[in-house]
């Protein structure tokens, strides 16, 4: 019996540890009031119980890539963790001029020739809107987050998070056409919910600038 006691102790500790660090998951389903799935929404969960966030890995390689291709940015929305670098390859045969006038990261890269790839580090949390000073219709968003728990909704409107500890979180849901981000408190149980949590959102009209050719000149005197 005495010889069994350390093993029992270990077992108990292990069970307790599992309980304490139980990994769970969360899935959101984002749709409009008409039931249309909403892509490019950013779901993020920030722990509220004071636990320290996992350290961000040292930025050795770019965390994401935003291409300039076909005179558009691809993808439209990119979520990253604070301090992460993003690479911006110009895959077009034309020049671009990336810029941001957003508070979390102001920068511009003019005379951006084809074949070039620049890397930009996003040090501060917040939403950074990217434009191109040559092609006014080009638009992209970088959502810089302190928490490591974030996901972008797919074309089916689904955003899933896995391997996060059970507990209380602040949930944020952001979308470029959402008038105000959705924020609420949630508590994640050790066992993930069977069904995704549904979010019904109202999107503002798409105010992107026109790309199609402008009408030509008149009869010409």
């Amino acid at each position: 019996m005495l010889r069994l006691r350390p093993a029992l102790l270990l077992f108990t500790l292990a069970c307790g540890g599992l309980q304490l660090f139980a990994q769970t998951g969360f899935e959101a389903l984002v749709r409009t009031a008409e039931g249309k799935p909403v892509a490019d929404a950013i779901l993020s969960l920030t722990p509220l119980d004071g636990q320290a966030l996992p350290a961000a890995p040292a930025p050795t390689a770019p965390a994401a890539r935003i291409s300039q291709i076909g005179q558009e940015y691809e993808p439209l929305v990119t979520p990253i963790r604070t301090g992460s670098p993003i690479e911006f390859p110009n895959l077009d045969t034309v020049q671009h001029h990336i810029y941001s006038v957003s508070k979390p990261k102001r920068f511009e890269i003019p005379l951006y020739d084809r074949g070039r790839t620049e890397i930009v580090v996003f040090e501060n949390p917040g939403v950074v809107t990217l434009g191109c000073n040559i092609h006014d219709w080009m638009l992209a968003y970088v959502v810089v987050l302190d928490t490591p728990w974030f996901a972008k909704s797919s074309t089916e409107g689904r955003a899933a998070l896995a391997n996060l500890p059970a507990g209380r979180y602040r949930l944020d849901l952001w979308h470029p056409r959402l008038a105000k981000p959705i924020t609420r408190e949630i508590t994640l149980a050790a066992a993930p919910a069977a069904a995704p949590e549904e979010f019904t959102v109202t999107l503002r009209p798409d105010r992107r600038l026109r790309r199609a050719p402008a009408p030509g000149a008149g009869s010409g005197y």
């Binding site: 026109r210 790309r211 199609a212 050719p213 402008a214 009408p215 030509g216 008149g218 009869s219 005197y221």
Partner: peptide, 26 residues
């Protein structure tokens, strides 16, 4: 001299194609 006034209604059919319907008065 020539005074002109015109308007143009231009729907975009795609990202690369547009129509232009124009009236001009000189």
């Amino acid at each position: 001299y020539v005074d002109s006034w015109w308007f143009d209604l231009s729907p975009a059919l795609t990202e690369h194609t547009s129509l232009s319907l124009r009236y001009e008065r000189n």
